[in-house]
Design a protein around this nucleic acid. Structure first.
Lengths: 343, 343
DNA sequence: CTCCTGCTTGATCACGCTTACAATTTTTCA
DNA sequence: TGAAAAATTGTAAGCGTGATCAAGCAGGAG
């Protein structure tokens, strides 16, 4: 068995509680005994037992991370590692550890969250997504368990601390940019309609068209998964339009999807950006390395994660902290996949 | 505060210990009281407290994951999410959770591991890499703490359970394949020389050349980081060779790196596979979507993770389990980046 | 009817730490 | 110098479970 607080106490000739106070750096302990106890800890190679501490203070210093139901898909997207880096950095600064909730399907993840929360394994939870209907969100809200969300809550926007981009504005900006290049037939390839981000972006797209006086067309709006395959499928659908009606520009809600688009276009002999401009979202590493390099809206994924863990920890340490909406900026990074319309 | 075992006991008119036994499904409890207690648990919405349980049994049902010092680099590579999926699946099957050790540099990660281990936060650790010199490995070994490694240990191969590919053979196979296509000037672009996988693969490459009677050239062997930039740098170096001496085929130790190679080659006007064949490793998703699609050695990353968490759990549950070397198969997936040499 | 056996269940302590409260020592000041 | 106040440290009771050991109880043998 490893060294406990009692061993240290015995060694330093003090009571266990004194050792505990030294660990907490309690000011009511004299500097002399602090020194003595610290020397003893050093000597014996003492490390506090987190589990015992957790049980005593009812706090674990662990944050739980919840991925959307389809973990597989989510893991494959470079969004995940990037947001994880941000989360990790924010957590690390405050000495929190990260624990993952994994599971094959939504049911499994839901159970995982319940176990984590009720089992007292974590002090708070980060939802790495925002869905239209979400059991997990409801559960956490009902139990008043500390959590933050990355993305905009579908309901209760003012009662949930969340970190988000202004996706409406970002997509409006993106669409405006394509319009400013002279494109008039601009299509939108979004993700799962159950994700709030998809909804928000679609609204931004629609708004930009409306402002420009361009009628909205149903057949210019597609929804696919945030995967390479999603991009492929989207292109196939667009190809079914008569040649003269095909869009000359695309707003794609995700880089990985855009990469799929790019490759499929290449196969069918459509050149980017000469025949078709593409502007996508996320600005992950691959967008820079694709052929041609993708113009992409940088949504600062790292910051999303970083702010999320920081604000969650704030909520945990002060439950009266007001609910916040934290908006991370966005920026269009222009590369070679967008070009003036030929008209 | 939430429902405890005592509340359930009171509600069901039994002793707390009886409830505990019902949870453990102890056969010494009559079916009648089991029913009664279960009903009470249901009624009160009881969920066992993991922390208290952990303290009582000295086991947490959590596995710690340790990334190599440069977490940033590691996170960016699609290897990470894939191996994570495998780990997650293996852990989930046995009801284990995953906790990440994160940190900016090696020092921070080392401290994180020590805290995790001494703090009793995890029952075992998975090292997601194998380095030539590794403090963390040494530490875990000395403390006889359960751990497994993904990759081949540099030392103590027979005293460390690990999951690995036969990287020597795999790279030999890869090189042989290129040789069989008629290439005689085959270069090797590996990763960090401190990683054992790099060493192993280099040996395999050398061995294949030797068997084929082709002399080994220092200037055909490069070491870069497992990143897009690594690939770029490698190409730049190779470009410094006189035209007639440039390799006609490349073995690249990582897909992401190969993607960097591909793009840089494209910029300098070298065509793949016409001018240069490329065979890389990992067979992650992007290898399929690059232009041209990359031939790649599939090392079954998911399986590496899956086997790792399974064997770690075995070790945890039975400390006398013999040390094992688990080899995951590999397979060359031929796509369009490799072609017959023109000669 | 008593005693023993075997099946169930209860009481109690231990896990390692925190913390309210009590006890002790030191300091302060009339 | 002595008592009260302040500073410091010790005692002990939890935190929620698991596990050991003892106790209760029914049924069967003698």
């Amino acid at each position: 068995m490893s060294v406990t607080i009692k061993d240290v106490a015995k060694f330093a000739n003090v009571a266990p509680s004194t050792v505990s106070r030294v660990i907490a750096n309690n000011p009511r302990i004299s500097d002399k005994t602090k020194e003595k106890v610290r020397a003893a800890m050093e000597e014996l190679g003492y490390h506090p037992n987190f589990i015992a501490r957790s049980l005593a203070n009812q706090s674990t210093q662990v944050l739980g991370l919840v991925t959307p139901g389809s973990s597989d898909v989510f893991f494959q997207n470079p969004f995940f590692p990037t947001v994880l880096r941000g989360l990790s950095e924010g957590a690390h600064e405050k000495q929190y550890a990260l624990q993952l909730v994994t599971g094959k399907d939504e049911e499994a993840i839901y159970n995982g969250v319940v176990q984590m929360v009720q089992g007292g394994r974590v002090d708070g939870v980060v939802l790495l997504y925002s869905k239209v209907e979400d059991r997990i969100l409801m559960y956490l809200r009902e139990r008043k368990f500390p959590f933050v969300m990355i993305g905009k809550p579908f309901k209760f926007v003012d009662e949930i601390t969340h970190v988000d981009n202004d996706n409406f504005q970002a997509t409006k900006d993106a669409t405006d940019y394509l319009l400013s290049l002279g494109h008039e037939r601009v299509a939108f390839i979004g993700g799962d309609v159950n994700l709030v981000v998809t909804v928000e972006r679609l609204l931004g797209y629609e708004n930009a068209l409306e402002k420009a006086g361009i009628p909205y067309r149903d057949d210019y709006v597609l929804h696919e998964s945030f995967l390479l395959e999603g991009g492929q499928d989207a292109v196939c659908e667009l190809m079914e339009l008569p040649l003269s009606e095909r869009p000359t520009a695309l707003v794609v809600a995700d880089d990985l999807m855009a990469l799929g688009v790019l490759n499929t276009l290449n196969k069918v002999g459509i050149s980017v950006p000469d025949d078709l401009s593409i502007l996508s979202f996320n600005n992950v590493l691959i967008s820079e390395m694709s052929r041609p390099p993708l113009s992409s809206v940088d949504i600062k994924i790292f910051d999303l994660g970083y702010q999320a863990s920081r604000s969650l920890i704030k909520r945990i340490e002060n439950p009266d902290e007001p609910y916040q909406r934290i908006i991370v900026s966005h920026e269009i990074v222009k590369r070679s996949s967008t070009e003036q319309s030929l008209k």
